[in-house]
Simulated assay, not measured.
Amino acid sequence: MNIRSLTRGDGVVTGAAVLLFIASFLSFRSYDCGSSINCPKEPIGWKPELFPVLPSIFLAGIVAAALVVVARFQPEGRKVIGLGLEQWGIALAVFAAWSSLWTIFGGPDVDQISPGVGQILALIANLVLAVVAALTPRTPALKAPLMGAPQPAPAPYGAPQGYGYPAPGGMQPGAGPSPYGAQAPQATQPYGAQPGPAQAQPQAGGAPAPQPAAAAQPAPAAGGDFTPFWFAVPVNRPLFAEDGSPNQIAELAPGTWYLAVEQRGQALVAQTQDGRRGLLQDTTGIQRG
């Protein structure tokens, strides 16, 4: 479960569900008894005499919010009776808002009875819940991640470091700068000369000076010429077991950099922040660091 999969819309939906839960314990109806001493006690949403207020307004809205949020942690394409969990949550949220609207305008036709604080807050919470849940998949501002990627601690002299971020200048993992920002020593070339093998310098008497043996070239890395790189996904993508089985071990979320350590055909072996490795089968639209 990756909490970074949650969106801003999910945060609003969760807040509306909390408000709805609080409203269920407040007075659902208000009585204007004047100077009468026999004024009935204002009921809350959990009172049996208000049935079906509890299941159709309060519980329906809370369950709808739970379905929308839980859908973020489920693999893409998983459906229940032909609909995804988010779609079921949106439908239930619209039902709860519709029930709240009819209840507040179609209550008992008595002058002394008016909507209570709990009933008014329930209507507001269910309307916000239904609208945001329906607009989140289609609104970029609501689809944005709720939590940004973690910022690494600054290194000395302001050099960025930390897991999950590509090195400056496109350097690959493991190729960090020299201590205190010093560059590796390089052989100087005469002005305008093309890089190439070192030329023999004449000694006294015209004899060329002996040249050192050429430095040995490092052997190519095993497994081909693949070089690890950082990447980010445009939408939530499931990460399956590295052995190719259909078991999902994690979910990659937008706004976070992950490390690709191996390529298998069109798929990538990716490593998460906590060190888990798995197979990313859908690599379309990924952004390389």
Rank of each mutant, 00 (worst) to 15 (best):
residue 145 P to L: 11
residue 213 A to I: 02
residue 243 D to M: 04
residue 151 Q to M: 14
residue 25 F to A: 13
residue 177 P to K: 11
residue 167 A to S: 02
residue 162 G to S: 10
residue 277 R to N: 07
residue 216 A to D: 10
residue 124 I to R: 09
residue 207 A to P: 05
residue 118 G to H: 00
residue 253 A to K: 07
residue 148 G to P: 03
residue 72 R to D: 00
residue 161 Q to I: 09
residue 63 V to I: 15
residue 85 L to G: 13
residue 12 V to P: 01
residue 72 R to G: 10
residue 96 A to P: 05
residue 75 P to D: 05
residue 241 A to M: 01
residue 94 V to L: 15
residue 134 A to N: 04
residue 223 G to F: 03
residue 240 F to R: 09
residue 16 A to K: 06
residue 60 A to Q: 03
residue 51 F to E: 04
residue 208 P to G: 10
residue 46 W to N: 01
residue 201 Q to S: 12
residue 151 Q to Y: 13
residue 244 G to S: 08
residue 194 Q to C: 05
residue 250 A to M: 07
residue 97 A to R: 10
residue 92 L to G: 04
residue 12 V to A: 07
residue 173 P to W: 12
residue 270 A to D: 04
residue 264 R to Y: 08
residue 69 V to H: 02
residue 157 Y to L: 08
residue 120 I to Y: 00
residue 12 V to I: 08
residue 3 I to K: 00
residue 165 Y to T: 00
residue 223 G to C: 00
residue 99 S to E: 07
residue 204 A to T: 01
residue 176 G to N: 10
residue 65 A to W: 05
residue 1 M to F: 14
residue 34 G to W: 02
residue 12 V to D: 02
residue 213 A to R: 09
residue 284 T to K: 11
residue 281 Q to V: 08
residue 79 K to W: 09
residue 27 S to R: 14
residue 174 G to K: 05
residue 66 A to D: 08
residue 75 P to G: 04
residue 111 D to A: 15
residue 271 Q to A: 02
residue 130 A to G: 02
residue 249 I to W: 12
residue 231 F to K: 00
residue 238 P to Y: 07
residue 248 Q to H: 00
residue 7 T to S: 14
residue 4 R to N: 13
residue 259 L to I: 00
residue 124 I to M: 14
residue 123 L to R: 06
residue 248 Q to R: 14
residue 260 A to N: 02
residue 222 A to W: 06
residue 45 G to E: 05
residue 173 P to H: 13
residue 71 A to K: 01
residue 169 G to W: 03
residue 134 A to R: 04
residue 271 Q to I: 05
residue 36 S to M: 04
residue 66 A to E: 05
residue 230 W to R: 04
residue 204 A to L: 10
residue 78 R to P: 04
residue 172 Q to R: 11
residue 185 P to H: 06
residue 110 V to C: 12
residue 28 F to S: 09
residue 72 R to M: 04
residue 86 E to Q: 14
residue 139 T to V: 14
residue 233 V to A: 13
residue 41 K to L: 15
residue 281 Q to S: 12
residue 171 M to N: 06
residue 275 G to V: 09
residue 10 D to N: 04
residue 264 R to C: 08
residue 111 D to C: 12
residue 165 Y to F: 04
residue 152 P to D: 03
residue 109 D to L: 13
residue 202 P to S: 10
residue 34 G to Q: 00
residue 12 V to K: 01
residue 262 E to D: 14
residue 231 F to W: 01
